[in-house]
Nucleic acid binder design. Structure first.
Length: 882
RNA sequence: GCGGUCGUGGCGGAAUUGGCAGACGCGCUAGACUUAGGAUCUAGUGAGGAGACUCGUGGGAGUUCGACUCUCCCCGACCGCACCA
């Protein structure tokens, strides 16, 4: 039997939707809105992979369903097109990144259109368009021209910054202003890759190292963004969004708030304090030594003559290590004594000061008080270097706990913590913390302190293919950000994308662009040659979809308020790999805009959902070696290596070129059609789960769509004679109304796999009927339409309609028809099933009991024993306890 | 090590105010139609047992008339972070 003609009808309706602007979105403020967003793709040369259609189909189904329910739905698509892979490709081929990007986006667009997604392509955005990155630059300047007001806890225009009175010279004032900006220049150690000629983000290093590149630590001039100022708000506002628990936890951990105290330790030999941060001020009496990071500013002063050689050697060794190497698994701690001593402010004792790279320069103050009795790391270090270990916290459960062998890090109560001025002996840990903190504060040698792990955002890249930073520098060392009327600062057209070789981007080589006379000041000027990271453009793209062509502003206020109303984007779907960085940067960016009142919500993404990965199947032998799929043959459900006949185990593995298990969406569309691909990806399993692709699974889905087609249409694509205006049987009515109800509910809950199985149940129910109710067929096609839009558009015409099914309403169901008039209930004897009974819906207990008592098997198991108790659950079961 | 998610047939997975475990699909078995079937249709399909029945949701305990679902302990898988003082 012939398959339904998907290869004809799919392109036909795609063209129809395009030409008739069926997916056009109007800013009709009278309708309730629904804004549903996908994470936009990076248009790589490889094209769409099989994972893309998963999340995109899910949102397409919801968008189409919501539209059928009367919502004005914004479901846009665009491209995150700046990025290193394109630039690398250009360096190798000499083809300009702009051309590469245009070609790749065109290819992506064609592939997305072939999947039948209902995007309004007039609303598409591309981060590399001048008219787009003009606003990325505009927003960067907003950040640059802001300081963070600690009292208001928000960004304020830099003009409002109050200048300390002791600053008089313009130079000092400018320096102060620059030191307060939310975007600033700093010399910091970065991950520099010489061959790529650029810095890399920490999370990018591994990837490039694996490809054989060398990445080293090196201090360089970089743009930073003070995201740390927003740490508390980024943490607090996680409470107001509906996000996956795990993602919220990851962001919380990343922000890493900890409460404790800063304490000054006096060093008599240099007459200076070393400030430490600790979360356990209650253990101050147990601080028997101090450790400062090798990069700490006081190391030179602290180092005595006889320790100098050892300290310098240690510093050299640790500076050669990258962050990653320094933290490599459970490596043994090392350190060197500086020769100096500090005074423990609680005990008055002289304690040695060491340097060790287990103390991180960038966290806290870069120095710690070491309490080896009650900190695992300090304990390990103290044991290794025979430093004294004191017990100052008692373990209630085990009074004999020996802290010289193992640290006790939990709460307990304080011991050996007493002097004339203060005592915390006998106090529990929280109380002891508070008493010590207050005492320190009164003495002026410490204060309570909240510390975050979050670090400032390294915002510059030494690349060509990114947004130019809209900043110019003058010869006198001053600089200015561009004004709005000077934007966009357009990337110059260059032929050579190789790095400048000076640690600057290729832009530094573009003499005619980089050096110029500033029209506004008449001064000789030079543009910043760094560009922005890829994250920048993706921080706000969801706002541009709202008003993509607007030349005056990134989005008109009324449109922004409408589409972002009710707490922001109604649903954002994308991979969990962006759980921290993209989602944290975008939240930060949005909050700055919120502080300026140009967006109306404190958070951009009200509800977030991560789709799982689509995996491939792979095979491994007894030595755990993965065998590429083209070297595997299957026989009787078992798998063998074609080279030596060795039996292999089938496992689920990420799709990869080397394993030859990559599925190409174009091939699937060619073989089974876009509708089959869409539904199959939904049917694989729960959207959030990772699940393996299955060749026979998609055949099953294709079979299902063929069955659905044959229910209504003939081989000649006309209405089947068996579809007539006839009443439904009660079973058919039940199936139809359950289907309408369940599919609607499942879409709302993102349970697409169970929605698809309900459709199969419907088709199974009606397949056996010789005559099918036309009404049932029409309502079913409407339910199926969000999932299989091409097939349903065609069936809708076959059923005699002339309007596009996209514009139809989702059918209503009758709740009374979703319950059967008779139900089967289970008879149990002492909780074991002994019989079944058909009774009217909501039958009362006595009637059921009477009927149940007639059941042979029940009587046999009751065996005349006295019934102790009867449990009756209406419409479910009756249970006799004997 | 810390944080999180999750363990159900041969496979993907359903089912939780606690109430028939395995919906739906794949695969498999048998049959029908057919020159043919890798198309289509029909029936069957957790395990054991001839059967009445018994066992069964990673393992062990507990609560309950009743546990995939709730509690405790253990084991395993995956993801994230990783000397954060």
């Amino acid at each position: 039997m012939a398959a339904y003609p998907f290869s004809e009808i799919e392109p036909k309706w795609q063209k129809f939707w395009d030409e008739n602007k069926i997916n056009k979105i109007e800013d009709d403020f009278s309708k309730p809105k629904y804004y549903i967003l996908d994470m936009f793709p990076y248009p790589s040369g490889a094209g769409l992979h099989i994972g893309h259609p998963e999340g995109y189909t899910a949102t397409d189904i919801i968008g189409r369903y919501k539209r059928m329910k009367g919502f004005n739905v914004l479901h846009p698509m665009g491209y995150d097109a700046f990025g290193l892979p394109t630039e690398r490709y250009s360096m190798q081929t000499g083809i300009h990144p702009k051309e590469v990007t245009a070609k790749n986006t065109k290819n992506f667009t064609n592939q997305l259109k072939a999947l039948g997604f209902a995007y309004d392509w007039d609303r598409t955005v591309n981060t590399t368009d001048e008219s787009y990155y003009k606003w990325t630059q505009w927003m960067f300047l907003k950040i640059y021209n802001s300081y963070f007001d600690e009292i208001l806890q928000k960004a304020m225009p830099i003009e409002f910054l109050s200048i300390p009175e002791n600053l008089v010279s313009q130079e000092e004032i400018d320096a102060y202003i620059d030191s307060q900006r939310l975007a600033f220049i700093a010399m910091i150690p970065v991950n520099w890759c010489e061959e790529l000629g650029t810095v890399l983000a920490n999370e990018e290093c591994d990837e490039w190292r694996e490809k054989g590149y060398t990445v080293e630590r090196k201090p360089m001039r970089q743009w930073m963004i003070r995201i740390t100022k927003y740490a508390q708000r980024l943490l607090d506002d996680l409470e107001i969004v509906e996000w996956p628990h795990s993602t919220k936890e990851m962001q919380k951990n990343w922000i890493g708030k900890s409460e404790g105290a800063e304490i000054d330790f006096f060093v008599p030999s240099i007459q200076k304090n070393i400030r430490v941060f600790t979360t356990r001020p209650d253990t101050l009496f147990g601080a028997t030594y101090m450790v400062v990071a090798p990069e700490h500013g006081l190391v030179n002063e602290l180092t005595t003559a006889d320790q100098k050689a050892a300290i310098e050697a240690y510093i050299t060794t640790s500076s050669l290590k990258s962050d990653l190497e320094r933290t490599e698994l459970n490596k043994e701690k090392s350190g060197v004594f500086t020769g100096s001593y500090a005074i423990n402010p609680a005990t008055g004792a002289e304690i040695p000061i060491w340097i060790a790279d287990y103390v991180l320069a960038h966290y806290g103050t870069g120095a710690i008080m070491a309490v080896p009795g009650h900190d695992l790391r300090d304990n390990e270090f103290a044991q290794k270097y025979s430093l004294p270990i004191l017990k100052v916290v008692e373990n209630k459960e085990n009074l004999d706990f020996d802290v010289t062998k193992e640290a006790f890090c939990e709460d307990g109560y304080a011991v050996n913590s007493e002097k004339s001025e203060v005592s915390i002996n006998g106090k529990n840990t929280p109380e002891a913390k508070s008493i010590i903190s207050n005492w320190l504060e009164n003495k002026g040698i410490g204060k309570k302190k909240i510390q975050f792990k979050l670090r400032d955002w390294l915002f510059s890249r030494q690349r060509y293919w990114g947004e130019p930073m809209p900043i110019m520098f003058f010869e006198d060392g001053t600089r200015r950000g561009l004004d709005e009327d000077e934007l966009p600062l357009v990337l110059p057209n260059v032929k050579d994308f190789k790095p400048a070789g000076t640690g600057e981007s290729p832009l530094a080589n573009v003499e005619e662009w980089v050096n110029f006379i500033d029209k506004k000041t008449g001064k000789k000027a030079r543009y910043e040659t760094n560009t922005m990271p890829q994250w920048a453009g993706s921080c706000w793209y969801y706002l541009r979809y709202i008003d993509p062509q607007n030349p005056e502003i990134f989005a008109a206020k009324d449109k922004e308020e409408y589409w972002m109303g009710d707490g922001g984007i109604d649903l954002y779907v994308g991979g969990a790999e962006h759980a921290v960085l993209h989602l944290l940067y975008a939240r930060f960016w949005h909050k700055v805009l919120f502080d300026y009142g140009v967006v109306s919500t404190p958070e951009p993404f009200k509800k977030l959902f991560h789709q799982g990965l689509i995996m491939g199947l792979s095979y491994r032998n007894k030595n755990n070696v993965l065998i590429p799929n083209d070297l595997v043959e299957s026989k009787d459900g078992k798998f063998f290596d074609t080279r030596n006949g060795e039996e292999l185990e089938e496992i689920v593995a990420k799709m990869s070129k080397s394993l030859k298990n990559v599925i190409n969406p174009d091939d699937v569309i060619k073989d089974f059609g876009a509708d089959s691909l869409r539904i199959f990806e939904m049917f694989l399993g729960p959207l959030e789960a990772s699940k393996p692709w299955s060749k026979s699974g998609i055949e099953g889905i294709n079979r299902f769509l063929n069955r659905a087609w044959r229910l209504i249409a003939t081989e000649e694509s006309t209405l089947s004679d068996s579809v007539q205006d006839v009443p439904m049987t009660s079973d058919q009515e039940f199936a139809l109304h359950c289907t309408i109800k369940k599919i609607g509910e499942d879409i709302e809950n993102l349970s697409f796999n169970t929605a698809v199985s309900q459709m199969m149940i419907f088709v199974n129910e009606f397949t056996s009927a010789e005559i099918k109710s036309k009404e049932a067929m029409e309502k079913f096609v409407l339910c199926l339409a969000p999932f299989a839009p091409h097939l349903c558009e065609e069936l809708w015409r076959i059923l005699g309609h002339t309007n596009s099914i996209v514009l139809e309403k989702y059918p209503e169901y009758d709740i009374t028809k979703t319950v059967k008039s008779e139900v089967e209930i289970v008879i149990q004897v002492t909780s074991k099933i002994r019989g079944k009974l058909i009774v009217p819906l909501d039958a009362d207990q006595s009637a059921v009991e009477e009927l149940a008592m007639k059941d042979e098997s029940v009587l046999k198991h009751l065996d005349g024993k006295p019934i102790r108790k009867v449990i009756y659950v209406k419409n479910k079961l009756i249970n006799f306890i004997v």
